[in-house]
Simulated assay, not measured.
Amino acid sequence: MLNSRSFGERLFDSLNALLMIALMAVTLYPFLYVLFASFSSPAELMQHRGLLLAPEGFSLQAYKLVLADPMIASGYFNTLFYVIIGTALNILLTSFAAYGLSRRGTLLGNKVMFAIVFTMFFSGGLIPHYLIIKNLHLFDTRWVMILPTAISTWNLLVMRTSFQQVPVALEESARIDGANDFTILFRIFLPVSLPILAVMTLFYGVQHWNSYLDAMIYLRDRELYPLQLILQEILIANSTDQMMTTVSDFDKGLVQETIKYATIIVATVPILLLYPFLQRYFVKGVMLGAIKE
């Protein structure tokens, strides 16, 4: 059978491809600009006008100053702690809640689910939240960045939907063999739900990596600041003097800009490197529940 395509179909595909390429360029170029600027010579970068398609006078000065700053190292350590410990706790607690709420016959399951979903639309606000954290003695501790956001309502709903699609026969056969709920969750539900676990890991990990507002409100000890709060100080408050103690007064104004670009790259690249490892699960996970079989 001859598979011939009409002129309109070929035209549509061509225009669609051009549109996707244009969107990719618009999305990618700002990141490339920051990357090229971070490797550029400060003096030549300040003189450059127009599009930046390559580093202007290759220089690693900005990265040397950024990586030598003790606050960057401290921020990295704190952020990795929040991401690793926080994401592990997020996945564990969300799995427990999703498993319990996805089982038929759960006591007050629908009422509990309604109460949880209600918090997505109505909340007490910042002041009650602040008072609760203060009364729990979480203020100015690392746990204030982890415990208050231990379970995301939206992520709980997505994981609950995933668990509801696990065949009931698997659970029943496991119970016949004497398995309890913990065994069923860790030996059956989680292994068959790898796509949703990958998506949850990405969502929670990015949330912790980018979190700075809670740190700004609840942390006073600079030794506990995450990397994003350090980045916020550098980009908005122009707090770069500590990095430029070895730079002459004449060059400080020039180096300051490349330091900002280098800090953005240092704070962004690690989370970008995580995505390729989760990509194969991502599409399947986010499409969960979109198609009924």
Results as ranks from 00 to 15, higher is better:
187 R>M: 13
53 L>N: 09
269 V>W: 04
176 I>K: 05
240 T>V: 12
216 M>K: 14
292 K>T: 13
261 Y>V: 02
60 L>K: 04
125 G>F: 05
232 Q>C: 06
17 A>I: 07
167 P>Q: 08
222 R>G: 15
211 S>Y: 03
181 D>R: 14
213 L>W: 11
210 N>E: 07
43 A>M: 12
176 I>L: 10
272 L>A: 04
293 E>N: 15
46 M>W: 06
131 L>K: 10
143 W>P: 08
217 I>V: 06
250 F>T: 11
171 E>I: 15
73 A>I: 13
29 Y>E: 12
279 Q>I: 08
154 W>E: 04
236 I>Q: 15
71 M>L: 14
273 L>K: 01
287 M>V: 15
229 L>T: 02
162 S>D: 07
166 V>T: 09
212 Y>G: 00
152 S>Y: 01
79 T>W: 09
247 V>I: 14
173 S>T: 15
46 M>R: 10
140 D>E: 09
180 N>V: 10
144 V>G: 05
250 F>K: 12
230 I>W: 11
53 L>Q: 05
202 L>W: 02
253 G>H: 03
29 Y>H: 12
197 L>K: 08
291 I>T: 06
18 L>T: 13
268 T>K: 00
153 T>M: 10
242 Q>S: 14
136 L>A: 11
224 L>D: 00
61 Q>K: 13
70 P>V: 11
257 E>R: 04
242 Q>M: 14
101 L>N: 03
80 L>S: 00
197 L>A: 03
205 G>L: 02
94 T>M: 10
60 L>F: 14
117 V>F: 11
25 A>G: 14
191 P>T: 08
133 I>T: 12
241 D>Y: 11
210 N>A: 09
51 L>A: 09
288 L>G: 14
284 K>L: 13
173 S>N: 14
218 Y>T: 05
275 Y>V: 03
83 V>G: 05
98 A>I: 02
236 I>T: 06
79 T>F: 13
55 P>A: 01
160 R>A: 09
56 E>L: 11
145 M>F: 00
238 N>I: 07
100 G>F: 01
175 R>Q: 13
282 F>T: 00
11 L>F: 14
101 L>K: 09
205 G>M: 06
110 N>D: 10
278 L>V: 07
118 F>G: 04
140 D>M: 14
142 R>D: 02
237 A>G: 11
251 D>L: 12
258 T>Q: 02
187 R>D: 08
20 M>E: 10
67 L>I: 11
273 L>C: 15
273 L>S: 05
64 K>E: 13
258 T>L: 03
72 I>A: 01
